[in-house]
Amino acid sequence: MVDASVNAMAGPRGSKPQRRFSSRNLMLYGTLIVVSLYYILPLWVMVMTSLKGMPEVRLGNIFGPPLEVTFQPWVKAWSEACTGLNCDGLSRGFWNSVQITVPSVILSIIVASVNGYALINWRFKGSEVFFTILIFGSFIPYQVMLYPMVVMLREMGIYGTLTGLVIVHTIFGMPILTLLFRNYFASIPEELFKAARVDGAGFWGIYFNIMLPMSLPIFVVALILQITGIWNDFLFGVVFISKADNYPMTVQLNNIVNSVQGVKEYNVNMAATMLTGLVPLIIYFISGKLFVRGIAAGAVKG
């Protein structure tokens, strides 16, 4: 230290020391961890409850792990839980949801991607006007359009059927998906499109040969967005499916858990809730950053 005051070259030198455990860092990570607990808590409670037997659930420690792990609630929720007179469990709703989701996702993505492509590369008189109506329409509460939609589907003879619901999902998914594809296609250099036209490719030729192969990421984003969105739908399922046997999983889940008859089996309810949440959760954890990209793309206007 004595040397340091003599030697003018002394003093700080080299890389600046990092204080890993500064009070700022403690506060930062402390807050983030506490917040994370709030977000994790419900998932933890659901899983734990679903793995306990009813006697243990009645003991009341919802946060504690099961003393004795049982998968009985899951089995029961999947294949035995009752809604009304049906007692074949959530599996029925699961398969209904699959039958609703798969065609809805495919049809809505096809329609919206072609829309987005036409809007960017083949603008025609009025195309932007229709698009603007479409985007503003996405803010209209569904309740305003529900009844005329019922009337239309009834006139077409498909009210209450799967086909009807698929059309409803395609229509109401159109604004956000069209926006998504339109913005993505807009980022593809226009010269590529011009080059393809000089090369003699037409509307569909350019779509299939040039645009589609370049747009796989955005198709995956749309896929994630639509699978979770349609799987999670409740309102359209209630309104546009007329037979309780055909209800999607969310509707059936609500009917099971909120039914007033019988003794409440909380463990079975939580297993059922987990089962319903499983498809979007799996999609979410697999897709990771693409999911984030999807919702960000959906959120940012064009």
């Binding site: 010269e191 011009k194 080059a195 040969n209 192969p213 370049m214």
Partner: peptide, 20 residues
């Protein structure tokens, strides 16, 4: 006439090569 029917070839600033 359509671009492809005009008897022209075109070279672009960004090359515009089909990446795939």
């Amino acid at each position: 006439a359509e671009p492809s029917d005009r008897g022209i070839g075109m070279v672009f600033q960004s090359y515009a090569l089909y990446p795939q």
